[in-house]
Amino acid sequence: MTLLITVFAAVIATVLWYVNLNKSDMKLGTLALMYWGASLMWFVDAIFEYAELGAEFFTPALEDMINDSYLGLCVVALGLIIWLIVLFVKDPKGLIRKKLMKN
């Protein structure tokens, strides 16, 4: 579930990056790449888990699924927080710098 939720987050971030390609400096590419990196890593993890568990891999217990989903959502939230920090530090539009200079 963690892998699935991260892949969905990566796809949504990529679509948003593509749609806003020429008109936005929101660092959406960074967010998409972060999620894709994590998705690829969890995919490798899933392959090794599948090799170990076999078909059982596709029928997880309900409790495990809920825990993994909760983890997946927390991972997406952490990714968004990292992206926000990167966005504010880089400040591509210079808005924060402008605001701070004004005060």
């Binding site: 790449l33 972060m34 894709w36 990196g37 994590a38 998705s39 690829l40 990714g79 990292i82």
Partner: peptide, 11 residues
């Protein structure tokens, strides 16, 4: 870098 740092941090 972004894929590696982001992925490692989330993992």
């Amino acid at each position: 870098n972004k894929m590696l740092w982001g992925g490692s941090a989330l993992l």
